[in-house]
Amino acid sequence: MTALEVKNVTFSYDNVTPVLENINITLNKGELVCLLGVSGGGKTTLFNVIAGLNRPQQGQVLLNGEDITGSTGKISYMLQKDMLLPFRTVVDNVALPLILRGVPKRRARQTAGSHFAQFGIEGTQKQYPAELSGGMRQRAAMLRTYLFSGEAALLDEPFSALDTLTKSEMHRWYLRVMDEIKLSTIFITHDIDEAILLSDRIYLLGGKPGTITDEIVIREPKPRQEDFNLTEDFLRYKKLIISKIR
C-alpha cells in the first residue's frame, strides 16, 4: 500500500532556475525511506513542497491517493531544531497539533500524555523544554510530530545536532518506537551510516537542479541486529552508496 506519492514534481523559487526537477518518490505504509544528499541540494525544499508550504510549478503530492499538493496540515514535519516552545510545558508542546485541530485542552493533554512512556519521556510532562537534555527534547518533538499526523512524517535531519553517543542511543530508540507505531516516514540526512542503519530504502538526491539519481534498497531485518554498522554487509552498502554519489 502506498502512503505517500510525489509525482513529477518540479519546483523553482523564481520561476527561472529550477531547484527540483521531475522528482518521483513513493513511500509505502509503515516504511522508512531516506533522502540522502549533499547540503544545499534541495532536500529541505522538497520537504517544504511535500508539507504544502511551497507549491510546485509542476507535479503532484498524493497522500493515500488524495491530491494534497500545496495544502498544509496533512503531513507532519520535524526539523533538526526541536522547536519546542520554551514557554509551554512539555506536555502542552506535544499536545499542540491536537489543540490546533480544535481538541479541548484537557483531552489533548490526556492523549499526548498517554504516549509519554512509549516515547521514553515519562515524567517530563510538567517540565519546561529547557529542563530536558537534547535527546529528550528530540523525543518530545518526535511525539509531537506523531500526534500531528499518523499518516506520514517528514523528518529533516532530526538527529544531526546531537553528539555521537546520544545519536546512536537515539537511533536505537527511534527504531524501537518506529517498530511500534509503524509511522510511514521520509527522513532527510547527509549521514550515510545513519541512512543505512535506519531506512528500508534510500533515495539519492543530487545535481543542480536536484533530481533523484538513484534508489537503493536495504534488505536487512528490522530491528537491526546488534552492531549492524560493524558488519561486512553494512560496509558493502556504504561502498555502493559512495560509488553512486561519485
Binding site: T72, K81, M83, P97
Partner: peptide
C-alpha cells in the same frame, strides 16, 4: 523564529492561532 512559524503553519495553524500561541 521563522522556522517555528513555518512548523506551526505546516500543522495547519491559522494566523490568529500563531499569534496567540507563538
Amino acid at each position: 523564529d521563522a522556522d517555528t512559524v513555518n512548523l506551526m503553519r505546516s500543522m495547519g495553524a491559522k494566523r490568529l492561532q500563531i499569534f496567540r500561541i507563538v
